[in-house]
Design a protein around this nucleic acid. Sequence first.
DNA 1: TTGTACGCGTTATCAT
DNA 2: ATGATAACGCGTACAA
Lengths: 336, 336
Amino acid sequence: MNASRGRPTLEQVAARAGVSRATVSRVVNGSTSVAESIREAVNRAIGELGYVPNLAARSLVTQRTDSIALVLPEAATRVFSDDQFFPSVIRGVSQELEAADKQLVLMLAGSPASHDRVERYAAARHVDGVLFASMHGSDPLPGKLARMGIPVVCSGRPLGPATVPYVDVDHIGGVTAAVHHLLALGRTRIATIAGPQDMVAGIDRLTGYRGALKDSPSRSIVAVGDFTRESGAVAMRQLLDDDPALDAVFVASDLMAHGALGTLREAGRRVPEDVAVVGFDDIELARYTDPPLTTVRQPIVDIGREMARQVLRLAAGLPAEPAIVLPTELVVRQSA
Amino acid sequence: MNASRGRPTLEQVAARAGVSRATVSRVVNGSTSVAESIREAVNRAIGELGYVPNLAARSLVTQRTDSIALVLPEAATRVFSDDQFFPSVIRGVSQELEAADKQLVLMLAGSPASHDRVERYAAARHVDGVLFASMHGSDPLPGKLARMGIPVVCSGRPLGPATVPYVDVDHIGGVTAAVHHLLALGRTRIATIAGPQDMVAGIDRLTGYRGALKDSPSRSIVAVGDFTRESGAVAMRQLLDDDPALDAVFVASDLMAHGALGTLREAGRRVPEDVAVVGFDDIELARYTDPPLTTVRQPIVDIGREMARQVLRLAAGLPAEPAIVLPTELVVRQSA
DNA sequence: TTGTACGCGTTATCAT
DNA sequence: ATGATAACGCGTACAA
């Protein structure tokens, strides 16, 4: 093929095609102002030599990298728990970036050290934009990068002054639908297992629960978990102690609901006859619990998609929506 | 800070520190042959200017990118099923790359189109190495890239002539332990739900099952699934039809075992009294099934770790192990 | 429409 | 130990 050492360059293609480097560059980048015959000759030379553009050289002059970072700032253990949140976000982001021919650089940033690493990497403009799939809305890094002029989009409404565009789901709407469903079922003592109150998802879902109960005779009965199965099991036990007569519980995540289901079984309560249970997320597992879990579906893959779209707009110099809120939907199965 | 437009360059740091570019470069790259006083002056200038090296420029001359691609070549739906395989591999890879200060470029390559994309990207040397987290050992791409001189490591023993270094787990050993456990329990009719026979994991686990049964009075009873819960449920039904008297089943994945558990409950069989069940993987869920699942643990995060280590060695011009096989371990819970 | 020439920021080679 | 200076491969004004 190419006798010279290493990969062929634009220069070599030009020589082979009998044109200048500039012309080859135009062909490669799809400029319209190239004679058809010349374009063909160039493309033939490219094919024969097996030429592929050198990204580094291109970046150097264009000031773009054609890659986007996705930061998962959670502790390593939590990042890939089987609630499938992060994997689904990755999938959505990946789909959208692939369509735009951008690369996805994944950065796990649970530790403070890796947090710094993300900052340095982004500040050095090694990516054209940064996506934060955090659930802790109080992280200062997104705002910091945004102020440096780096395109940034978050998943989950940031706590405090929202200076960074974000994509979130309608937690309140989903919870409201769930509680109303329980109310319509005739349940009168509806408890909740809330998520951690330093995450927007945890806060909003508890707020939604309280709001939905406001106009009903049922009072709030609250236990707090941390979105893990274990914490759901523990919280359910506590709830049962607090109010043995409760007849329904809205659980802020399917994983916690799974844990709660185990506790209820141990306690001899039938679901949904004695206690109706509604979860949140609609993870795969929800279809396979015993009984199958009624839950609130949130479109996680779409969160990733929208985030990617927004950051691409930003990177292209276009304006992005300051906030995108995706709809949630109650999925009725057999637990309520 | 820096009045000039854009980010500061090596040149500007040099001017500020009153030295040459070369010296600044030496300081940045930790060369030992720089006078202490000068090093300090340079570092001060770097700090004041907020200088960060331009990766593209560096890559252009070093011919390295300091990033490694991790390719997940499965169909999008399967990639992130809740068996947590890929997320765990990602975690392991990420940990190891971070320690080496390399970036992780994630590429999902389920479709033929994205498959091509991976090939182009790697062939263009936009990464220093490629990791394949495939389970389909017959993919020609790894071998193809390896022949181009690109550092490549696979997870899962490739089918056919293994020309590419790989990291895998001891499927056979794990299955053997599982079946022997069942035998020791006094079970005499031990069936299996095998995985797809076009994946090494599926093949090896079935081979292990047959081998372990060879020296025992129990005969093989086989149904084949595709590692999904659904397929496990279906296969279990089939097994029950084939041999209503079976008293144990080794299931080639925890997800399929979960499905099988559902079928057994519907059929009125008690686990483990009537039918003992052993899974494979030891996913998080295995602790929470009813009853908790006895299973074979495989160190998935370590697979990722080892893959990253190997590819890093290769990228550094060092030799890598042609094959690394990680141990598996039987975890006894209550289903068997 | 095509070619010329310069600059992008860094590392590496060779003097000094 | 330090400083010039030549690549590295490409995009793009500007000129023709």
